[in-house]
Computed example of a mutant assay.
Amino acid sequence: MSFGKNSTEPYVQVGNSGLFVYRVGLGTMQFGWSADEAAANAVMNTYVEHGGNFIDTADCYSSWSNALGGPENPGGVSEEMIGRWLATQNRYDIVLATKVRAAMGMQFCDSRATFKQREGLSRRWIIKSCEDSLRRLNTDYIDLYQAHFIDPLIPIEETLSAFTDLVRQGKVRYMGCSNFSAWRLMQALWTSDKNNLESFISLQPEYNLLSPTRGDFETELAQVCENYGLGVIPYSPLAGGVLTGKYRRGKELPQSVRAEENAERRFSEQNWNIIETLVSVAERNAMTPAQAAINWLRAKPVVTAPIIGANSPEQLISVLNGLDKKLSAADVDELDQASDFHRPRTSLET
């Protein structure tokens, strides 16, 4: 049975590594924010019932909840919810990913000096954060441990050495990164090779039809990942829910915790044109806009498995039901052209 990138089977290989994941991952940024524990459990149960095995979180999720009108959350709440749920599962059936770098518990710090000890990619913080995540996740190993974003204050050698120690101690199976620029990723790959350190196997970028960083990814990062065998697991494939079809030009905003944020960040004339093209392509293919947006990503050869989020089983099932559908090359091209202004041309492109 084949489970390769181009297989029709539901599991795909993460780059050149020995890690195989379901064709879409389950993101959990909303756990402890817009989804309480009962909702989180229902979503995770639905995901695994449909064959899913890849759950992605971060130590800081969802520490911004209180600032946006949600429950108080010092960070770690998403991991804790997953940990309690994981106790009801066969651990080895789940590919569990989390991240380190962001500040934790900053509202409890009484000085900037204290605050600086609770973030970053130093050896000290990586080791502590891994131990804390293991405890919260109720497990003795993390399948994919990711640098959430770069720490310019810390030498990459120190970061990669700490990650390597965790791998060789058996606390981490694989290393990945998120939100790295192309030169930072190349620096990390070169450093691992030069110093005989473990290497990143995956990149988690923001990548969707509306993403302002789409150009950076497509013109540089995608080539790095393809040439050096890294898997690509994009986050925010639906642009915070904007690509689900619930937002329409001239219509009242839906009632949700993210609607006002999206209105401030994502609604421009050009983005409305992209949304309308997406809706048109989706209707032509008997898909929902969300299904079409996910399948546009999955049509990109470099993409391994988009990470999707959901607040309810119904939202999740709606996306999962579209995974066996495909967009034609013409559909993909139409969406590319509609959103092409996000992708600046380089002098090397014809």
Rank of each mutant, 00 (worst) to 15 (best):
M44L: 11
A113P: 11
A39N: 08
L335A: 06
S63C: 10
E157P: 00
L166S: 09
I94E: 01
M81K: 02
D216K: 05
Q89V: 01
T244Q: 08
L189G: 04
P71G: 03
T8L: 13
P237R: 05
K116Q: 11
A329V: 13
S34E: 15
D93T: 13
L96Y: 10
G15L: 11
C60Y: 03
T219L: 04
R123N: 02
D36C: 01
G15M: 10
M29E: 12
E72P: 03
R84L: 04
A239R: 06
S7N: 05
K128Q: 15
I154T: 15
G15Q: 10
I233R: 01
R258N: 10
R118V: 02
K128C: 08
D143A: 10
Y22W: 09
R184W: 06
E283Y: 00
P306Q: 09
Q315P: 00
N273Q: 14
M175A: 11
A282M: 05
R184K: 10
R214A: 15
N196I: 00
Y22K: 07
A35G: 05
S62G: 15
I150L: 12
G250A: 06
Q13R: 15
K251A: 14
K194H: 08
S236P: 00
D132G: 00
P301W: 09
Q187E: 15
R84W: 00
L209F: 04
T8V: 06
G69T: 05
S161Q: 14
V14W: 01
L26Q: 14
C109Q: 12
D216C: 02
D36E: 08
S133D: 04
I150S: 14
E49G: 15
L203W: 01
I55S: 02
L121G: 06
L189V: 05
L316C: 08
R266M: 13
G245Q: 07
S78W: 01
R124K: 12
N285V: 11
A147Q: 07
D193C: 06
S63R: 02
L137G: 02
E218V: 11
W272M: 08
I317T: 13
Y235D: 09
M104V: 11
E49D: 15
H50Q: 09
W190A: 14
E349R: 13
I275W: 03
N285H: 01
L166M: 06
E218R: 08
D93W: 00
S34V: 05
R248A: 12
L297K: 04
E37L: 01
H148G: 05
D336N: 15
A292T: 09
T213E: 10
A239T: 05
I154N: 04
A305V: 05
L96M: 09
A103P: 11
I156M: 14
P237E: 08
W64D: 00
S129W: 00
W183L: 06
G105A: 00
I274P: 02
Q291A: 04
Q117T: 14
Q315W: 04
N73H: 02
D336S: 07
Q169L: 14
S161L: 07
V172G: 01
W190D: 12
I294G: 07
S211D: 15
I308T: 14
G69M: 01
R214L: 08
G27H: 07
K326H: 13
P313Q: 14
T159E: 05
E72C: 01
F115H: 11
L297S: 03
D143N: 13
V279E: 15
L86D: 00
R266I: 07
N138F: 00
G51L: 07
R345M: 09
A39H: 04
T8F: 10
R258I: 14
R84G: 02
A87P: 02
M1S: 11
A38N: 13
